[in-house]
Design a protein around this nucleic acid. Structure first.
Lengths: 219, 219
DNA sequence: AAAACAAACTAACGATCGTTTTGACTTTGC
DNA sequence: GCAAAGTCAAAACGATCGTTAGTTTGTTTT
């Protein structure tokens, strides 16, 4: 019991996620816009959207209050941009994985799962905020991200359904299996750190194996 | 593509969780304390801790501002109580499952997974708030819940490790498998509703099967 | 050198935040 | 029948909220 405690603690004992640099893909971190997005991402992850004030964001970004409003029309737009970037990056990773995968459902599921996990390992803070703070956006502001999410789900669903149809997968309820596969990958962002003792490849490969086992893939 | 869209949408297209009655186990919902906890649970789920004001909670609970402070010393204590109840209920469900399970690691994992899923289906709003709003508590206020979480993880970890030791499970990294199993169950709270077309038993049984497959259990 | 422009500054707006005070009214248990 | 506890009502506390107006600074264009 005492043997497993330290490793378990490091991986799962934290209130939201472990301290990681809040990187935002496709944004220059030295520019004012990048500084705002990074500071906001950090604070939204730490305190939630409602718990982080615009002044807090500007203090951490080392800019003045009005400078933020020169780049974003409102606080909500800052979160909306982060959510959009997060879902964009995730969708891009999935599509790229599909393009490079062999046309075998098992290999496609493995490639999708590896991309899913790797994306959550590379941008864990962004993934957590994009998922956990989505509710703070109005329906209109959240719509683009919701649409991206829908497309991502359909992408994976189609692969799974095809695998079931051609006999590669043996699973009673394919869509229920999809929820399980999606859920397990999402959670990685909450405990992964670069120094967690495992490489991204190790985690991604393991999770890909889990997904195939879960689907009852023939070995 | 169009065939799977409606079912997928109902299960996964929402910003946080679907509309469900915010039930709180072990609390009289007609009493003032119960009304406060239910109203707070509902609003924390909808808007987050920082986005729900004490006045909002009192309005929804149909009480005066002063009455809330007669029952709780602060807003943080209301969340802390919800978080504690949520983790308590979850831990209780896991322990009860272990007590009734046969001493076979595979049957124990299946029982734990069924309890894990059933708990998240019975109190989805509570589960979401207890997990997603934990970061809003101070370290001291979150400590009891963190301790409960640690014990729950160790409970499952021990069963998995014993199963690997005796050859019931075939998995390279048992603790990594634990994160996957835990994560997939957590996510159920975000999409389950009583009228989602599946019974709790169906979902719990399916997820238990997924967990055993993931662990490479011998059939 | 002058004009034009965007970015960052100081200061403040009204609204709302969590919490407290004071006091009267109603219900409950001994 | 009466103290105790619970609830309502209204107001207010200082602090902080998201946002804006107006001014200064620095750079580019003419």
């Amino acid at each position: 019991m005492a043997i497993i405690a330290p490793e378990l603690s490091q991986m799962t004992q934290h209130r939201r996620l472990v301290a990681v640099e809040p990187e935002v893909p496709g944004v220059d971190p030295t520019g004012t816009r990048g500084k705002i997005l990074r500071a906001a991402l950090n604070l939204f992850a730490e305190r939630g959207y409602g718990g982080a004030s615009v002044r807090d964001i500007c203090t951490r970004a080392d800019i003045q209050l009005t400078t933020l409003y020169a780049h974003f029309p409102s606080k909500e737009h800052v979160l909306a941009e982060l959510v959009r970037i997060g879902h964009d990056e995730h969708q891009r990773a999935l599509r790229e994985a599909m393009l490079q995968a062999q046309p075998d459902p098992a290999q496609q599921v493995a490639a999708l799962m590896r991309a899913h996990v790797a994306s959550h390992c590379q941008y864990p803070v962004l993934a957590v905020v994009a998922n956990a703070e989505l509710h703070a956006l109005s329906a209109a502001a959240a719509a683009p991200a919701m649409e991206l999410r829908r497309r991502s789900e359909m992408l994976v669903a189609e692969v799974i359904l095809r695998g079931v149809r051609v006999g590669t997968f043996q699973v009673l309820d394919p869509l229920l299996a999809l929820t399980a596969i999606g859920g397990m990958g999402l959670r990685v962002a909450h405990w992964y750190t670069p120094d967690c003792g495992k490489t991204v490849k190790e985690i991604a490969d393991a999770y890909a194996e889990y997904a195939l086992r879960l689907l009852g893939a023939q070995q």
